[in-house]
Simulated scan of single mutants.
Amino acid sequence: MSIKKRFTIAPDLASGLRNSIQSASANLGQLHYDMMSLDIIERDPKNPRQLQLSFDEMLNGINKSDSDYAVKLKEREALIELSESVKKIGIKNAIEVYKDGVKYRIITGERRYWAAMLAQQKSVPVRISQKPDEFHLRYTQWVENINRQDLSLWEKLNNLLLMADAYMQSRQQTLTEEVIQKLLGVSSIQAYRYAALLKADDKLVKLIQLGKLNNLKLVQQLVTMKDLGARNQMIAWIFSSKDEVTSLAAYKLVAGKTVRSALKTEKPIQLGKVKNQHIAKQLIKIALSDERLEKHRHIFQSIDWSSSVAIKRAFQDLFKKIESEFTRDEMVVW
């Protein structure tokens, strides 16, 4: 007998879709597709995906002495490639806009807009929508951009900050870890890391902006690190690094003696006893929900929960798996 699959979407997204449908019904005839002159379209100045490339550089090239030459060159090459596609087959996915005064402002599709300019197009297909409230505008941009491989952590942070501010303004609530998980449809671990990203201080934000930190997990480790002295030393080291830092492994090689000696002096921790087998089962289930332990879950499917010896052995196996899968960086941070 086949089992029907059930698909769900985040409650906030469902609410947003309902509001959009209701708005479309109430404003029938005002929500439509059209061809629109590029002259009356303007970009969103707060779009989290900001190009470092100027329009002049996009048309005429980049000075090789520019400190951001590598980044700008990558952006220009991507736009040129997209513009060639626009010349051959046009824009298949319409640019979404809303009326703002005498012009129309972009909601999604800014790179398609720039590619059309580069391809010397006079007009582009657009989807004209009702002006969204600030939160749903930023949320729509997040959904549009999040799966792009070239999306930087700096762009994600900007989008999250805009969403958090709009969420506070519209609902008088902060964007908590729980809200992020439901809103973005991500795992609890990913939501925890995004929440940590929102708490990054000025030094970490600067490192993210410079592109020296582009790893969400690493930022979370630094944000939640309790040893402020060690944390400040790591941040100073990252600032001095010429390239992007993807883990603290290299730092540990430089300052490894201190770290290793700290690890060696740690004393065994007694975690206490659990008398209720249901609680023991729940604890193991919670631990195994971590995505890093996914490949080991099958090992714990045949535990004899009526046997205290089997349960004890299961916990011992679990701790070994955690030690093998969690990196030294995570051991130190936590």
Rank of each mutant, 00 (worst) to 15 (best):
E75V: 06
A164L: 11
Q50Y: 09
M1Q: 05
R148M: 13
K257A: 13
T108H: 01
D304S: 04
K281G: 03
V274W: 08
R260S: 09
K5R: 14
K275M: 08
A195S: 08
R171A: 09
A191H: 04
K103R: 15
Q277M: 13
D66N: 10
A195L: 02
D329T: 15
Q301H: 15
S152R: 02
D290V: 12
A164V: 08
E323D: 15
L79W: 02
V97L: 14
Y104N: 07
K212W: 05
S129Q: 12
Q52C: 14
K252I: 13
Q181H: 12
V126F: 00
R313M: 13
N27Q: 11
R171S: 08
M36Y: 01
V86S: 10
A262V: 10
K99F: 04
L73C: 08
K242L: 09
E178L: 12
N145F: 09
E155S: 03
I180P: 06
T108K: 02
R49D: 15
S187A: 07
E77G: 02
I128W: 03
N147L: 00
N60T: 02
Q277T: 15
G109K: 03
H278V: 13
F315M: 10
M331Y: 15
S187K: 13
K212E: 01
S247R: 01
R313H: 14
R111I: 01
Y98Q: 03
S15W: 03
Q30Y: 11
A14S: 07
E330M: 14
A255F: 11
Q190H: 12
I80G: 06
K273Y: 10
I128K: 03
L73S: 14
K87W: 08
K264P: 07
Y69L: 11
K264V: 03
D317W: 02
I279E: 12
A24E: 11
Y251S: 02
V219H: 00
V254R: 06
V223K: 06
D56N: 01
V71D: 12
P268W: 08
K156W: 03
L184A: 05
Q52T: 11
Y33K: 07
H32Y: 11
I284N: 06
E244G: 07
D290T: 13
R18S: 13
F135M: 04
K122G: 05
I80H: 04
R43L: 14
Y104L: 00
A166Q: 05
K103N: 13
L28N: 06
L207W: 01
A94K: 12
K275Q: 05
K156T: 08
K273A: 14
D227S: 06
S15P: 02
L288P: 01
V223N: 06
E134M: 10
S152E: 14
P11E: 07
L222R: 04
A310N: 05
Q121G: 10
K267R: 02
L38A: 10
Q120H: 15
I303K: 05
H298T: 11
E266A: 10
K87I: 08
A191D: 03
L73T: 13
Y139T: 04
N47R: 09
R138L: 10
Q220L: 07
S83H: 06
R6T: 02
A250H: 07
A166G: 05
K103W: 09
K64Y: 09
L175H: 04
R18D: 15
S289G: 08
D243E: 15
Q301G: 10
T258I: 11
I146Q: 13
